Amino acid sequence: MDRETKISGLAFIVLLIGLGLAASFIVLFAELADEMLEQELGVFDAVIIALLETVGSNAMDLVMFIFTELGSVWVIGFLSIIVLWILSFRMRDKWGVLFFFVAVGGGALLTFLLKHLFNRDRPSINEAIDAVGYSFPSGHAMGSLVFYGFVIYLVIRTKQKPWIQWLSVFCLSLLIMLIGISRIYLGAHFPSDIAAGYIAGAIWLVLSLVALEWIQWQQRSPVPPVQALRKVLAPVYHAVLKKF
């Protein structure tokens, strides 16, 4: 088996794993949404809210306000312009531009649709922290996971130095988590809203990246995907047959 076929086959398997991961997240989201509708998340939400209330202070209020703003529409919108400039003029990645729009723009639309599907009221209304409209799932949680998750993908995909990759993954992952915590701390969301936002964001991000990788792989690989997969799996199939 030539090297190109082996790489293509393994890449196809990775894409299938991505689709399987997205399917698992869909099931998880459905379970969480069902429990929310059945009002079975009260204890879960109350315990986490009570824990965050124990660290409340004026200084913490300011810190959490800063983190919540980093997940706002305005900040992510501004940062998206920078990312699009990099993708368009520095990397000249037309497919990256398209799927960045699909991921971030489509994610925002999906958040809107899900919020109006479930119609869950917020724990409190506060326009100062962008806490208006429906609560489930959290738009800040979903939007930050999709946007900052896409940035993590770009850092890894562009083959930066290992320490830059690890630092970026750690810092951006921590930021995503703190944005969600800030929404709970400030009373804008229930913890289950944040969990739902992360899960829904993960679904959309994985599907967007799988589609992007599929198209880019199709363009750069001379080996048809199905043929590559068949050649990679053939030895495994024959080995199993021999054992039986």
Rank of each mutant, 00 (worst) to 15 (best):
residue 223 V to D: 14
residue 147 F to Y: 11
residue 108 A to M: 03
residue 174 L to C: 03
residue 153 Y to V: 09
residue 116 H to S: 11
residue 143 G to K: 08
residue 34 D to V: 08
residue 187 G to Q: 07
residue 35 E to T: 04
residue 151 V to S: 07
residue 108 A to G: 13
residue 197 G to R: 08
residue 29 F to D: 00
residue 89 F to A: 12
residue 216 Q to A: 02
residue 42 G to I: 12
residue 61 D to S: 07
residue 180 G to H: 08
residue 15 L to R: 06
residue 197 G to C: 12
residue 61 D to R: 04
residue 20 G to L: 14
residue 228 A to Y: 06
residue 118 F to S: 12
residue 125 I to R: 07
residue 209 L to Q: 09
residue 9 G to P: 06
residue 101 F to G: 09
residue 62 L to H: 04
residue 73 V to N: 14
residue 140 H to Q: 07
residue 5 T to P: 14
residue 176 I to G: 00
residue 183 R to S: 02
residue 27 V to L: 13
residue 107 G to V: 01
residue 143 G to F: 06
residue 29 F to S: 01
residue 161 K to S: 10
residue 153 Y to R: 09
residue 168 S to W: 04
residue 149 G to H: 07
residue 218 Q to S: 12
residue 98 L to H: 03
residue 39 Q to A: 15
residue 129 I to K: 02
residue 235 P to K: 11
residue 148 Y to D: 05
residue 39 Q to N: 07
residue 15 L to W: 03
residue 32 L to N: 03
residue 105 G to S: 10
residue 85 W to P: 02
residue 216 Q to V: 00
residue 126 N to T: 04
residue 197 G to N: 03
residue 232 V to C: 13
residue 47 V to A: 08
residue 201 G to W: 02
residue 175 L to H: 02
residue 82 I to S: 09
residue 91 M to E: 12
residue 150 F to H: 10
residue 202 A to P: 07
residue 240 V to L: 15
residue 51 L to M: 11
residue 124 S to T: 13
residue 163 W to H: 12
residue 133 G to W: 14
residue 45 D to Y: 11
residue 199 I to V: 15
residue 41 L to Q: 12
residue 204 W to A: 00
residue 199 I to G: 01
residue 69 E to K: 13
residue 239 A to E: 06
residue 56 G to I: 05
residue 171 C to I: 15
residue 235 P to M: 15
residue 82 I to F: 13
residue 173 S to N: 05
residue 236 V to L: 15
residue 227 Q to I: 11
residue 105 G to R: 04
residue 33 A to F: 03
residue 217 W to Y: 06
residue 161 K to C: 00
residue 140 H to C: 02
residue 162 P to S: 02
residue 42 G to Y: 06
residue 150 F to S: 01
residue 28 L to W: 10
residue 163 W to C: 04
residue 38 E to H: 14
residue 83 V to I: 13
residue 71 G to Q: 00
residue 222 P to A: 08
residue 154 L to F: 03
residue 117 L to K: 09
residue 7 I to W: 04
residue 45 D to E: 08
residue 132 V to H: 10
residue 234 A to M: 15
residue 115 K to T: 07
residue 26 I to D: 10
residue 64 M to C: 04
residue 192 S to M: 11
residue 93 D to A: 03
residue 109 L to E: 10
residue 39 Q to Y: 15
residue 54 T to G: 07
residue 172 L to S: 05
residue 106 G to I: 11
residue 119 N to R: 00
residue 90 R to A: 07
residue 87 L to M: 10
residue 188 A to R: 00
residue 150 F to T: 02
residue 241 L to N: 13
residue 74 W to A: 12
residue 227 Q to P: 11
residue 123 P to V: 01
residue 125 I to Q: 12
residue 118 F to E: 08
residue 51 L to W: 11
residue 56 G to E: 11
residue 136 F to C: 12
residue 18 G to K: 02
residue 119 N to C: 13
residue 176 I to R: 01
residue 72 S to T: 09
residue 144 S to N: 01
residue 94 K to S: 14
residue 244 F to M: 11
residue 59 A to D: 10
residue 241 L to C: 05
residue 55 V to C: 07
residue 182 S to T: 09
residue 52 L to M: 15
residue 11 A to M: 08
residue 176 I to F: 00
